[in-house]
Design a protein around this nucleic acid. Sequence first.
DNA 1: GGAGCGCTGTATCGTATGTTACGTATTTTG
DNA 2: CAAAATACGTAACATACGATACAGCGCTCC
Lengths: 276, 276
Amino acid sequence: MISSIAELISDRIGTMPAGERRAAQTLIANYPLTGLKTVAEFSIAAGVSSPTILRFVARLGFQNYPEFQSALQDELAAQLQSPASRTLNPASPAGGGAVSPMLEATLDNMRETFRHLSDKQLADIAARLAERRGKTFLIGGRFTDPLARYMAAHLAIIQPDVYHLAGQESIWRDRLIDMGKRDVLVIFDIRRYQESLIRFAEKAHERGVQIVLFTDQWLSPIARFARHVIAGRTAVPSAWDSSAALFVVAETLIGAVTRQLEAAGAKRIRDLESLR
Amino acid sequence: MISSIAELISDRIGTMPAGERRAAQTLIANYPLTGLKTVAEFSIAAGVSSPTILRFVARLGFQNYPEFQSALQDELAAQLQSPASRTLNPASPAGGGAVSPMLEATLDNMRETFRHLSDKQLADIAARLAERRGKTFLIGGRFTDPLARYMAAHLAIIQPDVYHLAGQESIWRDRLIDMGKRDVLVIFDIRRYQESLIRFAEKAHERGVQIVLFTDQWLSPIARFARHVIAGRTAVPSAWDSSAALFVVAETLIGAVTRQLEAAGAKRIRDLESLR
DNA sequence: GGAGCGCTGTATCGTATGTTACGTATTTTG
DNA sequence: CAAAATACGTAACATACGATACAGCGCTCC
């Protein structure tokens, strides 16, 4: 059974020609507001012509555009009057779709991850990353290296001397000679923990490098060498572990570091502002 | 300070004549829907004439009726996009650090992103990625390329011919000659949209490549060329946009593709199982 | 490679919509 | 109580909005 227009669209979007599909996508993207505007505005937003919009609503079963708008308004009225019913994706059939459980598990993971993570802990790590005594290196494992890249991409903008260690093991192993007590090494490592990373962490630790470890709740062996450990929940109903919680922690940290540097009035940040 | 139109009305309703006051009351009664209808409908609902409605909106300071409606729509857009403001969470320590708001916003972003995303849509994309007629290419922008890498790292394990396009523009631009109708190109692009990516997407589209686009709610121009568009929420209380919602969608897709291939009994998957 | 079909945009048309002018009703004030 | 001012609705108007016809184009299927 189809109750909302959004469902109706996603049900038939497959059978639509390209132009009408663009219309459908733009409408879904910020539903239902685009549909409440005029045909001309809708068509511009979707990058198609007016008749295409009209054919689109016709395909949905509406006699004319006003009727379509009325339906959207009625839906919106029902939604606004009972904000409690703003459940996520009522389209999902309780049994079939495996999306909701996945999302629910991910959200739970994040809440749980942050429940075990104090503000002070994050602030400390942020402070460590923000104080520019030495260099910052980032590295990750097979699946988590993208997280290291993501964090590096941001940090490298707001401060100098941020390096992502990429490529072959032999390459970043040689970078060890650049590292010392004043430096910070951010490592992402979840199961299955990688031998090469562990060895690398140990060597870095011996050189006095401060290690910040992102790992899962079972803690990578690297935790032995780490100054700070962030343990994220990774279990989801999937064949793969989820790094989403660690990703959010990383984003939070990026934000915290940025804020601390702003507060410190770093020149680089002010320069950055002017570029925005 | 007056922020919403509803406030504006209740502020001036005292100085209004009887007819306009009735208009104000009917609008407030089921705000803001009555204001989105036509003048005639509004007037009937309020039991007054059309000119009275127009005088009413004029008294609120609007030049004409469409301007008034635009203002209402903007307000509604802001309201729909940040359901966070609605759920005041007494559990979170109000005084504490800047962590909770960031997390709350991220969780909201995810819920909102998936609310606009049907199971069917995800299943369609997963099916497209799972059917092994052609090759799969992944690429991202400055900050989102790590997401492309993350997805590529997983997909490359469960199926052959998965390539992440990295490095200089000239390098992946030349890969276009390998792409054709049977291939899929997954692009991550959020504001500020990168010219190079747009050009690349256009070229790929011209070659008949099926494009799956991960973007933000304002839709990258690439949406024009995309077969499938995933619009994630990115707004968080930080100097940076958040890609966390897109990350979770990516993980969900990875899971869905894996499941489909398992269901299809792909040999590669069985081989993979034995390696675990 | 050619014929047919379907999709899309341009241009045009009729109409519903917002707007305005004006006359009547109602209230206010001296 | 009278006169003026204000408020309100009816009716006519112009704009812009949605609808439609038609032609060009690309795509698919013989």
